[in-house]
Design a protein around this nucleic acid. Structure first.
Lengths: 147, 147
DNA sequence: AAAAATAGTTGACTTTGTCAACTAAATGTC
DNA sequence: GACATTTAGTTGACAAAGTCAACTATTTTT
């Protein structure tokens, strides 16, 4: 295998790691840790979801998740009700407060991306998205292939 | 500002966050933490560098850095000598063992990227690199703009 | 010659994440 | 339908990662 493309991809990855770090920083100003914010995000996206599914999706330790959820319940962000079909399991969803919290996190993220796009023209923004989609398509890493 | 490109960029970022997580996993098998490995990487790249510069580059707390360096010195990966020009400062560099360690980490990273590129043709690899470069160019986020 | 700033270290602490053992319910097996 | 096995989630004990403030020793500024 040729060396050069590998080096270029590693350079991109290092750079984007930094970008992600910057994007995540707004979370430092929020009341939530990164893990909590992702949890809020995932529960919002799923609307109703079991802890076991979150474990699979997020590759997170179940004891850790259990404690994160406990905190989010205490803060009235997440509510838990018994699964109708499975007596061991619970269905998690966002409370109204949780929805509002999600909305705030979400629009903070949007604004942050917005600021980054500021200097670009409409056409450049489209280009950017095109390149990103192309990267995703070419490099369609299936997490499960690497576990 | 339009909503759609923002959502697409956020989707890309989430996806690439996962990719980076997978790429970082090989470090779990190494003797070094993520922070230590990055330190080894940065010191290698700079050849000689002061802790204060690392703090700036890596956005890392100075007490934390101090302890990481202490461990790397103990393990004979990094060596420290007094800066000729500044009596408070030290110049850090990799020992021979450090160089070897860097070499191992580095080729493990290369191999991992190599595996991801496996399914792609030579032409596709070039395409991929092209898209990545375009993203970097368009989105040339200067970390300092966001501090 | 102070005063202020910078380089790095240390102590005390918080946050984040992991591992193993456990309870309770569900599923598979004979 | 009783037993063994697996699955969902919780808890205790701990380890790793990261932060904050105070400190020493130099260097720079005024």
């Amino acid at each position: 295998m040729k060396k050069r493309p590998i080096q270029e991809i590693r350079a991109f990855t290092r750079w984007y790691t930094d970008v992600i770090g910057l994007l995540d920083q707004h979370l430092l100003d929020s009341a939530w840790s990164l893990a909590e914010a992702r949890l809020i995000y995932e529960i919002h996206a799923a609307r109703h979801i079991q802890a076991s599914q979150l474990i699979e999706m997020m590759h997170i330790d179940k004891s850790y998740l259990s404690r994160l959820l406990k905190k989010l319940e205490k803060e009235k962000i997440v509510s838990k009700k018994k699964s109708p079909g499975d007596g061991r399991a619970f269905l998690l969803s966002l409370t109204e407060k949780g929805q509002r919290e999600f909305g705030m996190l979400n629009s903070a993220s949007d604004e942050q991306i917005g600021r980054i796009l500021e200097p670009l023209s409409e056409a450049q923004r489209e280009e950017l998205v095109g390149h990103m989609k192309a990267v995703m398509q070419l490099l369609n890493v299936k997490p499960d292939n690497y576990e």
